[in-house]
Design a protein around this nucleic acid. Sequence first.
DNA 1: ATGAAAGCGCTAACAA
DNA 2: TTGTTAGCGCTTTCAT
Lengths: 339, 339
Amino acid sequence: MQRTKIQDVAALAGVSVSTVSRVVNNSDYPVTAEKRDRVRRAVRELNFSPSQVARNLRTNKSKLIALVVADIANPYFAGIARAMDEFLFHEGYGLIISSTDESPDREKGILNRLRDQDVDAIVISSSGQNISLLELLHKEGFPVMLLDRNIEELHMPFIGSDNVRECCILTQYLIDKGHRSILFLAGSLDSTTGKERLQGYRKALLKNRIEYDDSLVLHGNFMRDETYRLSVDFFDNRSDRATAVVSSNNLMSEGFLEAAFDRKISIPQQYSLVSFGSIDNQRLITPILTCYRQNLEMIGKLTAQMTLQMINESSGNADVPQNLVINDVFVEGKSVGTI
Amino acid sequence: MQRTKIQDVAALAGVSVSTVSRVVNNSDYPVTAEKRDRVRRAVRELNFSPSQVARNLRTNKSKLIALVVADIANPYFAGIARAMDEFLFHEGYGLIISSTDESPDREKGILNRLRDQDVDAIVISSSGQNISLLELLHKEGFPVMLLDRNIEELHMPFIGSDNVRECCILTQYLIDKGHRSILFLAGSLDSTTGKERLQGYRKALLKNRIEYDDSLVLHGNFMRDETYRLSVDFFDNRSDRATAVVSSNNLMSEGFLEAAFDRKISIPQQYSLVSFGSIDNQRLITPILTCYRQNLEMIGKLTAQMTLQMINESSGNADVPQNLVINDVFVEGKSVGTI
DNA sequence: ATGAAAGCGCTAACAA
DNA sequence: TTGTTAGCGCTTTCAT
């Protein structure tokens, strides 16, 4: 069965294709009521709906926005994706989602693919290793928006948390509870996010005149399994070196908790934990984590809004980079004990 | 900055556009090594990469596959999406993901959108309320593949679980532990999946000569919050009517567990629970659920494979509908007590 | 107010 | 082995 095209409609309505196009697009171009009606009827009769592909080619827009993240199965990204989709759908946009698995190479491949697809914008939580490619895309006119992980030299719109501040407060919370030897689960230091969260931790130590000890920083990559391994190793060999831990994201918190569970370390009795980001199914898990909880719905919606704004601006004049720093919610749970 | 196009490459290489096209597409068409080289060099120099949009229009393929699910933030779908993306990326395909929130209207809107985008295939976990539209898409040549929820009258390829069998076994497990009054958390009965799981439950009752009691079936819609409400209501008003419960999917299990937690009902001491599908962060949650665990990685990969197969076949001859029934893994946890 | 026609960037049939 | 060219379905300029 063939797709009905604009010519078919034009023929049935007895008008030219231009007229059909005008009507279909609700152009404010003048069309007599009568023809408009004839076209509308023909459209309905033939169940016509214009090929977005042909439009794409002609107009250089695809009505497609890409979301590039480490892993769409991470509830953090899935929640944001959900909210973005919700918002974008109503604006007539579709969402292409790709996972990089934290691999810069994979990320590069994905970005190149997106370039060819002519997506209208790219929202990316980048490894931070593809700066020149992102720059190139930007130059070619792709609105690029940085999500969660900023890349400062790029001067592109960014939405994310105040990592330094929030991590500092989390650490301070532990210190206030009497902890002095605090482990830090670091995410990838190639990303601003990873760096800034570590920085927040150090800032809190400094403020409280606690000496920074490099051996208390476990270097991970924001991923659960790896954190599990690091944590098990820590428990097995140097468990007594710390009384509390600051985790850099939700997955790392999960990995740590799994390790503690397997090593029969009880939280918060033996170890206290604070987390950047809450974990999935928290209501079913003991203890409730003391953490900064991110409002995924809001982040997703704002991201979508900013992205559309970029798209519209970029067709106009200068695109003004804009940074949006989200204030997450501090949740006082039961995962921290007093010393 | 302008996109470089095939003409630019042709000019720089001193050949015709067809030659460039042939080289770029690795066509097995004969091209002399020398020209091939010249083209390759020009491609690199100009950083050329063909517009997928123009290709789409010309070839009627978009290298885009759509995944339509109730909610991409449901770990079940997110896990499948992740695995599909993994596989499809290597085959040169992108993945458009849309969430329907279980709304047939929303689903319809999404499907119409996808039609215009000319996606190469649609993978859908459908509400089951848009049969005629799915049929239309099929007639128009869109390969459609049903995921998790079958619609039998459509005779389209399907991948999913053996719902009747697995739910029957889950129920039987409870019966074997001495339970006779068993609550069933039903998903939407508009979907085959919802119906079949209920059917499996009834089958087990029948086999054991336990009378089916309609008031022990809580009618939900596969969603967490609603199940929470239904469960709380049950606990508050008719808690003593049952000693065990069969849940129709992961989210409903979570909703039930949250309700039990809030009402201080302990599992499995006061109530036993078996679940179709495991829950997120299970390792951190007590008790471990007795459930059928679905291998999302495998399901996603197989789905992607079948989809590509459909795409390739449909360009060829008859597309043979194919049903793939996954054997999930029975996990014996600690969520069931003996009576 | 309407229609004819150019052309978006590419592939592929056909010609040479 | 290579080049020329039609045309994918649409939007939009220009002429009427």
